[in-house]
Design a binder for these strands. Structure first.
Lengths: 249, 249
DNA sequence: CGTAACCTTGATTAAGATCAATTCTCGTGG
DNA sequence: CCACGAGAATTGATCTTAATCAAGGTTACG
């Protein structure tokens, strides 16, 4: 599945969600798909900057890596979310210079990760003829700025226990919103959510939380010993929501 | 000085630099000036979101603060740089909702800091009629995203000595670029720059580098003991550029 | 059912924060 | 012009968090 790009895929992407079939055809005409297996790097450095990406299937981690091999994951990208827009817009006037570089490294963290690559030049032309999309793009970048501001806040002002607590609460909230959407859509009532399923390895989670696997493991254990959560491999059940919230402050 | 907003001030702002006098008049018609003394908070929380800011004189720090009072400075804003654009664009479709919040706190760090406040709604109208500005705005936000990515990289992957070294090298580079600009403009040749003047207090610098004053002080001393830099209160002379570069990696 | 990837647990170390005591610097008023 | 005091910076001793090093356990999957 997903060997050919179709308009309905594009329609799921926020930036393109309000376009007509003809306009989607145009986007499709200059974009292309690429498939990656777990662990494969999305050839960021080898290729010159080609355009921005959108995940259609699987998942991608965006990370920085130090000269000693230490890694920090800034984002995990799931289907229909875009990334690597920065080089397109950064150099106003000199649009996509030859020496454009990607701000982050990208690696597939699931097998059969499919991404669509949307080249910068044709996209910029398209935007010029559809200025409404500028506001969508500005919205996407603005949200990411807020996310990064909060991420820095977490990393610099909170200890590991607080960071993990906050992360769990966020994921719980996401799951709840998801539930509400399904309820609205299907007109049914689902039972209250009190657990989450980690969608990434604990190693990747530790890297995202700015710590290491061992420390994360111990921190999970602490929260479990305090009867605040229950950890069953990837399933985390929240036993004491109030306390978790208290800790995360 | 700077009691009345003039077009030439607006012209120094990247976003507005290519506008005509009439267009600048329009911007001026819905914007207003505000003055702050050192230590004053730019009433972020008390007021509902009014618009984005641009410093015209003085300097502003943008920071996060924890429940225990620990602070981290993300940006120092100097004249003609804008900030607080995020809430304008974040909620596409629901443009500047009532509950819009500023992503960061802001405080003047010099006396007589003058900022111009540009309200969201009239600005959005203006942009709609001048879609070329969208690209400038996208450029500004994209640059900031790269900056934050790098900032996170520094905080999570480098120790304090590396972070300080990198900071000094960046400031040195800025000073060099500045020198080159003056040389070009005036057609003269200035002598090579090998020192920088810290423009903020060491306390603020430590907060920006993700550490505390004492640790920063010791790190300066280490670099000085190794004959890599010389510290004379706010003046830092780079004695061994190569070694400093080596450390910062 | 064997092997590799993933995760946990324990002992030790190190970087940097905290606490505390001075010293330096600079603007203001006598 | 000097003295004073407040804010800024330095230095030292100690403590804490989390990283590192090391070993073993668990899980998933061909």
């Amino acid at each position: 599945m997903l060997n050919k790009l179709e308009n309905k895929d594009l329609k799921n992407i926020f930036l393109f969600s309000e376009l007509s079939e003809e306009e989607l055809n145009e986007i499709r005409s200059f974009s292309h798909l690429k498939k990656f297996d777990k662990g494969e790097i999305l050839s960021f450095d080898s290729e010159p900057y080609s355009g921005f990406y959108c995940t259609l299937d699987g998942a991608v981690k965006l990370y920085k890596i130090s000269s000693e091999g230490k890694e920090h994951i800034l984002h995990i990208i799931y289907p229909y979310n875009t990334f690597a827009e920065v080089p397109i817009f950064e150099n106003y006037g000199e649009v996509v210079k030859n020496n454009a570089t990607y701000p982050l490294n990208a690696m597939a963290i699931e097998d059969n990760t499919v991404v669509i690559i949307i080249p910068a030049r044709p996209l910029l032309n398209f935007l010029e003829n559809n200025p409404k999309l500028y506001l969508k793009m500005l919205s996407t970048l603005s949200k990411r700025l807020r996310f990064l501001n909060n991420h820095i806040e977490n990393l610099t002002l909170l200890d590991v226990k607080k960071r993990l607590s906050k992360y769990l609460l966020e994921k719980l909230k996401e799951a709840e919103l998801n539930k509400e959407n399904i309820e609205k859509k299907k007109g049914i009532k689902l039972k209250k959510i009190n657990s989450i399923e980690l969608s990434i390895s604990k190693n990747d989670l530790s890297s995202h939380l700015g710590t290491i696997l061992e420390t994360l493991s111990r921190t999970f254990k602490k929260l479990q010993d305090e009867k605040i959560i229950e950890v069953d491999s990837k399933k985390i059940t929240i036993l004491d929501f109030q306390k978790l919230k208290e800790i995360s402050k």
